[in-house]
Amino acid sequence: MLEHIESIHISLPDQRLTAYGPSGEKWSRPVSTAANGPGEANGSGATPRGAHYIRACIGGGQPYGAVFVGRRPTGEIYSPELAARFPERDWILTRILWLCGRETGFNRGGRVDSMRRFIYIHGTPDSEPMGVPASHGCIRMRNDDLMALFDAVTPGVPVTISTDDRH
């Protein structure tokens, strides 16, 4: 794992997040983006494209599998039993990296604002598939991978979400 991440690229075609360190070293992991594909509009359930940055790192110090609702820990720890009790929940687990768009009119402001759409990189149950689009717009990661990423980023790190698989 990288000690310090300077930028992140998310490839929608590859369903991969690649993080880059100061000397160009790479760390890459599978993700799951929106089942509805790419798109910027509020209410679309799609993953927004373009230049973003990490606006906030939420959940430091919370236990592995901590459940978040409205960016706040509920005090619950994810389990299959909890999932059976709340089958309608879109599980946001362990940590949250809240994204903010940089491109006014495309992914920032008005009906296309990634931050107001609550677009995150977040943990998900291990039972959820990686490498295939299945989220409601966010970027889902395995909890172990997210914890490693969280520990290596700070607010302000640039994140590019692309339909171009070349990085």
Rank of each mutant, 00 (worst) to 15 (best):
S79F: 10
R95G: 05
I58R: 01
R89N: 09
L93W: 13
G61Q: 06
E81N: 01
G75H: 12
T74D: 10
G109F: 02
C57L: 14
A83R: 07
I121C: 03
C100I: 03
P133N: 11
I119Q: 00
P125F: 14
R55W: 10
I96K: 01
G50C: 09
T74E: 10
L93S: 04
L93I: 04
R55M: 06
A83Q: 12
H52C: 03
P87N: 06
V67A: 07
G59P: 04
G65F: 08
T104N: 11
G75W: 11
P63N: 11
I58V: 13
R117E: 00
G61W: 06
G60I: 08
G75P: 12
D90I: 12
G75Y: 14
R108C: 08
P48S: 04
L99H: 02
G101N: 06
E103V: 10
Q62M: 15
S127P: 09
Y53K: 11
I121E: 01
I54H: 02
G110H: 10
P73Y: 04
W98D: 00
H52W: 04
I54V: 12
G70L: 01
S114M: 02
A134N: 14
A56V: 00
E128N: 15
G50K: 07
V69I: 15
D113G: 05
I77A: 08
T74P: 09
P73L: 09
M115F: 13
Y53P: 00
R72T: 11
A84E: 14
G75L: 11
R55Q: 09
G61S: 10
P48V: 01
G60R: 15
P129A: 13
G123F: 06
R111G: 10
R117Q: 01
Y64Q: 09
I96R: 00
G61M: 10
V112S: 08
G70S: 02
R72V: 11
S79T: 15
W98E: 05
R102T: 09
G101Y: 02
G65V: 02
E81D: 12
I92F: 13
A51H: 10
N107E: 07
A134Y: 04
T104A: 15
E128Y: 15
G105R: 06
R89D: 04
N107K: 05
R116F: 05
H122I: 03
C57P: 00
H52S: 05
L82K: 06
M115A: 11
V112M: 07
S127K: 13
T104I: 11
A51K: 13
I77T: 15
D90P: 01
R102H: 08
V69F: 06
R108W: 03
G61I: 09
I92L: 15
G109L: 03
H122L: 04
F68V: 02
V112C: 13
P125W: 12
L97V: 06
I96C: 03
G131W: 03
G60Q: 14
